[in-house]
Simulated scan of single mutants.
Amino acid sequence: MSGETVRAIVDQLRVARRRIFELASLVIALSLAANLVSSVLFDLWGARLSLFVGLSVMTACFAYYVFTQTRERSYELRIEAAFASDWDNSHKPLALPGYRFSEEFAQILNATLSENAALRNQWESHPLGHSRSTVSHRGTTQDSASFRLVREAAEYVILRELSHHLDRHFNRGHFNPELLVEVTRDQLSDILMSNRVLEMISRDIKDRPGMFDRLDANNGKNYGSAFQYALFRLTLPKGSKLRRLASGALLIDGPALRLEISTAMNGANPYFYPLFVTHVMGREYKDTGRWKIDFRISAKIKKPLVIPASRWPYHSWFESFTQRLEHKFAYKSFFADINWPASEAILAAIFRSQGLEFIPKDMRNRGMDPIGQFDIGD
């Protein structure tokens, strides 16, 4: 995370507002305390010039303090998510058990590939293990079909998380419905055109002819049977809009908050504990692909003094949203939460007490030492 911390943003702004009144009191006190000095200046400069200088200094100090405490503030958060894939099955997405993002992501993307034969063909024609980029008919370079599908599925997961979070935030408090607006699928034509996963999953079931097609009869690859449907909506403060920027990021632009969410996949391979892959996922490490997804969230608090204090709860949802994303999406946080190094040591002791091999033979044959290679704090 870079820039100022996202934590306690609204509380900081409330404190800043209170300090403005504290400053006014201090200015009065200091002006009285400086009476002796001003009387000397009065004798030297005269009444008019002394009054003008004094008021000018007081005004400048007050304006400077107000500006520094209530200017627009920017915050940026970067979250590194990850998922696994099956090298032997066209890089079918795999979940890391217990890691919420990877479980939801794999479920969403597998359901999409199961239902939509056209997208499935694109995925298998340009799987993740191949080149990241392809050349279009116009001669321009673009992401391969599989990379684009990964990005769209990941963006859908974060949008669904945002939708659920907003519902929880506005349902548990006393909010005036007249100060809220509901953004629905019908208002997101530009986003639907650029995210086929969102478009398909939020489409009316009656308009989805492939919803019962789970198995590709041509090659027998099964991508799972979980059917996905969600009525997409976002509840936001009145005056807020959601749209796609030219950069590809999503923008939520409201009266007090401007929030950008970008999703990227550049082909980087995160480090998963080999023994986690072997003993928890039940797979061979060499047959398991590992892929990283980067989420960047940039927030700007607009002119805090313009929004009444009573309205700030309508805009404070993004603070808890970013905290939830850090906990649920960051793959290093997942390994830290389960304390895998300690769990690994316990499992090793159990295996050895039973006379079992803890480190698989294929790792030993390749000279791998999979224990203690990953520093969660990196």
Rank of each mutant, 00 (worst) to 15 (best):
S2I: 01
S2D: 06
T5F: 06
I9K: 11
V10N: 13
Q12N: 14
R14I: 00
R19C: 09
R19D: 15
I20H: 11
F21W: 15
L23W: 08
V27E: 12
A29G: 14
L30K: 07
S38G: 11
T59F: 05
C61L: 15
T68R: 15
Y75L: 14
R78V: 03
I79G: 07
A95T: 02
L96G: 07
L96M: 14
Y99V: 04
L109D: 07
A111T: 00
A118M: 10
A118D: 15
H126N: 09
H130V: 05
S131C: 03
T140H: 10
A145K: 10
S146N: 00
F147Y: 15
V150E: 06
E152R: 12
E155F: 00
I158H: 05
L162Y: 03
S163A: 11
H165N: 09
F175L: 06
N176P: 02
L180I: 00
L180M: 09
V181R: 14
R185N: 08
Q187E: 15
S189Y: 03
D190S: 15
I191P: 10
S194K: 15
M200L: 12
I201W: 11
K206E: 15
G210C: 09
L215N: 10
D216R: 04
N219Q: 08
G220M: 04
L231T: 13
L231E: 13
S240P: 01
A246F: 04
A249M: 05
L251M: 11
L251R: 09
D253E: 13
D253F: 01
P255Q: 13
S262P: 07
N266H: 07
N269P: 02
L275W: 04
F276E: 06
V277E: 11
V277Q: 10
M281L: 11
Y285F: 15
G289D: 09
K292V: 02
D294I: 01
F295M: 06
I297D: 09
I297S: 13
I297A: 07
K300G: 05
K302W: 04
K302I: 01
K302N: 08
P304A: 04
I307V: 10
A309F: 01
S310N: 07
W312F: 11
F318K: 03
E319Y: 02
S320R: 04
F329E: 10
A342T: 05
E344V: 03
A345C: 07
I346Y: 08
L347D: 07
L347T: 00
A349S: 10
E357L: 05
E357S: 14
E357P: 00
F358I: 06
K361A: 08
M363W: 03
M368N: 07
D369Q: 09
I371D: 06
D375N: 12
